[in-house]
Nucleic acid binder design. Structure first.
Lengths: 262, 262
DNA sequence: CTCAATTTGTTCGTATGTATG
DNA sequence: ACATACATACGAACAAATTGA
């Protein structure tokens, strides 16, 4: 059966060439993500008529029904409005979520943390040290592990997993248990912070984080690791912070030596 | 049929309570993402025996087959090795990709860009200005649009979409067409850059970006926008850069006023 | 007003993928 | 491994609404 095997070859090649082996996420969701981005960025402005189904089919190289599924998703989000015979229109813009400007110097970071509404969801004393990079100083003997959730307008936007040197925690259990740790540490006159290493990467939500932030497992998050080193080269504060991917931006004027713009 | 409607109610509630309505990404992929993260972060170290299927079923609250699908994915990536009767073991770690440290001040940015291997994939002169934020100065009359791809070890890791003021481009077409624009601009003695606004966010790959970076549509990327403002408050350089999510980190010592660590 | 072109909406059949128990 | 249910995706045909000539 030369013909049929040739046909199945075509079919397989088509499959391989498709976008599908690169991500395995349902196609209509991928398409919807891109369209959502176009609306959010203003590339498709509110009130605009977007491309026709036929054009979108061609652009994304998918079937009509798949485009319609994507549009249906965005309709439910209130972003699109499809009208038979007329076209599909942009009916709204996702609420602007980039209200949080991440800190880029210590003072800004402090100011940012001070206003945080936090909820401690877990505290455990005398735990073993977290893994540390070679540049991140030496571990203290014991730590207290604190997990908290930050809220903005009642919505969770970040989860903090903090290892705080046990001796520091013991100095003011009450305060550390109920409010942000950073200001408390800074106020301690005898604690000298020599370094505050911050590392920002893109990660994925593990089950706990996903639950606390109310997002799906494996969805991307902005992961910020903050390590404070004291004058004995001890990592007294090791925080892994997971931010919702949409809630923040990191704005800097590179010519202004790290000063953060408002 | 009171019973059957009750049963379907149960079914629906179970569905709603599941992780599924939060992300719609196939469950086994979500599970695989989390397990991949654990390996990458060292939480599951190479050679370790990971939890049994039963434990994983319980932890993720999914069926056994779903766990096995996730494990199968990671087996194909060479990260896991399942042996009947013995258990499942970590057999490798995803290649360490965080080789790129994003710049946080102008000089570092320049140094970083100078070594870039770029490939221009598109050039178009005399295009209309891009959308500008109110803080991003005034647009020039015309721009040249340049799209390029950056490579590291033959692998693409970022796509740059650059709007360069037309008059600047015209001053050295050849050089701008084949190498990074930033150094060329800095060398122009009569061009004074007053601001270099950088904004980092998490975005999603549109079709062009996905193709150039060889990733799936809608996968997360790190989006860096860089706008240079000259002494006439004109945005002479507007770049939207999409980085692969895994290739970079942004490391800063917050106490060292924006200086970037090596 | 009618006609034709355009555009979205609906449906069928088929194949494959996902998830449970 | 199996049986079941439902989701995803394609292609194609047809229906219904809108627009403008």
């Amino acid at each position: 059966m030369a013909l049929s095997s040739y046909l199945s070859y075509i079919k397989i090649m088509k499959k391989l060439a498709s976008l599908y082996d690169r991500s395995r996420v349902p196609l209509y969701i991928q398409v919807a993500s891109v369209m959502r981005q176009r609306i959010e960025s203003g590339h498709w402005a509110e009130g605009d008529k977007i491309s026709t189904l036929e054009e979108l089919e061609a652009e994304f190289a998918v079937a009509r029904v798949t485009i319609r599924q994507a549009i249906e998703l965005l309709r439910n989000e209130g972003l699109l409005d499809a009208q038979q015979g007329r076209g599909t229109f942009v009916s709204g813009r996702p609420r602007h979520n980039r209200w949080l400007n991440l800190a880029n110097d210590f003072d800004t970071m402090l100011a940012l943390v001070k206003d945080n509404v936090i909820e401690r969801v877990h505290i455990e004393e005398n735990v073993a040290p977290p893994d540390l990079d070679e540049r991140e100083g030496k571990p203290a003997e014991k730590y207290t592990f604190l997990r908290s959730v930050q809220y903005n307008n009642g919505e969770p936007f970040s989860v903090v997993n903090l290892y705080l040197a046990q001796n520091l925690f013991a100095r003011d259990r009450k305060r550390f248990s109920h409010s942000a740790a950073l200001p408390s540490i800074v106020e301690m006159q005898d604690v000298r912070i020599l370094h505050a290493y911050q590392t920002l990467t893109i990660g994925v939500a593990d089950p706990e984080t996903a639950n606390l932030l109310k997002i799906g497992l494996g969805e991307p998050t902005a992961d910020c690791r903050l390590v404070l080193i004291d004058d004995a080269n001890t990592a007294i504060y090791v925080a892994n912070i997971h931010y919702l991917k949409d809630c923040f931006a990191l704005r800097v004027d590179l010519l202004n030596k790290g000063k953060v713009e408002a």
